[in-house]
Amino acid sequence: MRRAKITIVGAGNVGATCAHWCAAAELGDIVLLDIPQAEDMPKGKALDLMQASPIMGFDSAISGTTSYADTANSDVVVITAGIARKPGMSRDDLLGTNAKIVGSVAEQVKQTSPNAIIIVVSNPLDAMVQRVLQVTGFPSNRVIGQAGVLDTARYRTFLAMELGVSIEDISALLMGGHGDTMVPMPSCTSVGGIPILQLLDAKRLEEIVDRTRKGGAEIVGLLKTGSAYYAPAAATTQMVEAIVRDKKRLIPCAAYCDKEYGVGGFYVGVPVILGSDGVEKIVELTLTTQEQADFKKSVDAVQELVEAMGKLVNA
C-alpha cells in the first residue's frame, strides 16, 4: 500500500508547522509548496525537516517546491496560503486579498489533483472555503474548512486553565462561523462527564467563551509581527489524520450545509464525521433556544461575508 500524498500550499509558519506535525505522525509523504518568488525557501524547510527524521524516528518523505507539477495526484491538499493578520486587523479584513490568492490556488489544485480532499485554513475561513468550492467544482464533501477543531481546542484550553483539570477530561463543541460570532455549546461541554454548568457559573463561562472568540486576536496582539500557527497547524493535522487513516472522527469543521440546520448553501462550523471520503456525514444536534438564536446570528454573518467576497471577486 502506498503512502498518502499530502500537499501543503504555503510554506509559512502554519504550513511548515503542519508539515512538521504530519511528518512526525507519519501520515504520509509531504510536499511543501510556495510561490515562485519564495525561490528555494520551501526546499530548505523540507530538507531541514527531513534531517530531523533520523532523530525523531519518522519515515515520511518531505519535499519542497514552487511547482504545482510536483504536487500532482495528492490525496489531501491543505491550503494555508494568504496574508496573515496584523495587530488591529480582523479576519474579515483579509477578504479581498486572500480570495484572489486562494482562488488561484484552487484553480491549480483542480488541474493537478482532481481527486484530492482539500482542507482550507486561510482566513477569513468560512468565505475562503466557499471560494475553493466555487473554483474547483469539487463535491462539497471533499472541500472542508479547518476552524472548529482549533476553536474547540482554545475553548478546552481556557476551561482547563480555569478549572485546574487535565485537558484530556474536557469535552466541548463550538459551532458557527470562525470569528466573533462563533457559538459555544454549553449543552455539549463537560468535564469528565460532568456538565460544565455544574462546575462554572454562566457568567464565568461566557467570559471564557468571549476569550475563545478572540483567541486568535489575542495571539496576534502578543506576537505583534504574525499570527498563531502551532495550534492551527495541530488542528489541521488532526483533520489530515482523520482522512488518511479513515478515523471517522466526530469533530467540528466548516462543512457545506444546503439544508442542515436550516442553512441554505453556505459553509459553517458544524459537527461532522470525518473520514477517507472527507465529510461523510453532518451531525444535526437539537439546539437550545439560545443556541439556535446564536447560531442563526453566526450564519447570517457568514452569509454577509460570502456576499461581500462575491462582489470583490466579480468587481
Rank of each mutant, 00 (worst) to 15 (best):
I119V: 15
R154F: 14
A147R: 01
V105M: 05
T65E: 03
A52E: 15
D151E: 08
M182R: 03
F58D: 08
A106C: 07
T152H: 08
I62A: 05
V143P: 01
L150Y: 15
T66V: 15
A61S: 09
M128Q: 13
R154M: 13
V165G: 02
G176Y: 01
A69V: 11
E162S: 13
G164M: 07
I101R: 07
A99Q: 05
V143K: 01
S187C: 03
G88Y: 06
N123S: 13
D169M: 09
T97G: 10
Q134T: 13
G57D: 10
S60M: 08
G179A: 07
N123Q: 11
I117F: 05
P139R: 11
V143M: 02
I144V: 13
N73Y: 13
A99H: 02
S60W: 04
T152Q: 13
A46D: 02
V120C: 13
A69W: 03
H178V: 08
F58N: 10
T181S: 12
G137E: 10
L47W: 12
I118T: 10
S90I: 00
S113C: 12
E107G: 13
I144M: 08
A99I: 06
I119Q: 05
E162C: 12
V76S: 07
N141D: 11
L94T: 03
S67C: 11
A81F: 07
Q108E: 15
D70T: 02
Q51E: 14
G88I: 03
N115Y: 09
R142K: 15
R91H: 13
S53P: 06
A69R: 14
D151R: 12
F138R: 04
M89L: 03
I101E: 06
G137A: 06
S113T: 11
A153N: 06
G145R: 00
L159G: 08
A116Y: 08
L150R: 06
L173F: 11
I62D: 04
N141C: 12
K100C: 05
M161N: 14
D48I: 04
V183I: 08
L125Y: 01
R85H: 00
G177Y: 06
P114C: 05
L163V: 10
M128G: 00
N141P: 03
A172E: 07
A127F: 01
G145T: 00
N123I: 04
L95Y: 07
L47H: 09
F158T: 03
S90W: 02
M56R: 15
V132F: 06
I83K: 14
V143N: 02
V102T: 02
M56S: 12
T65H: 05
L133N: 03
A61R: 10
I117P: 00
F138W: 06
F138M: 13
T181G: 00
K100D: 13
A106W: 01
G88T: 03
V183N: 04
A106I: 03
V78Q: 10
S171M: 08
P139N: 11
F158C: 05
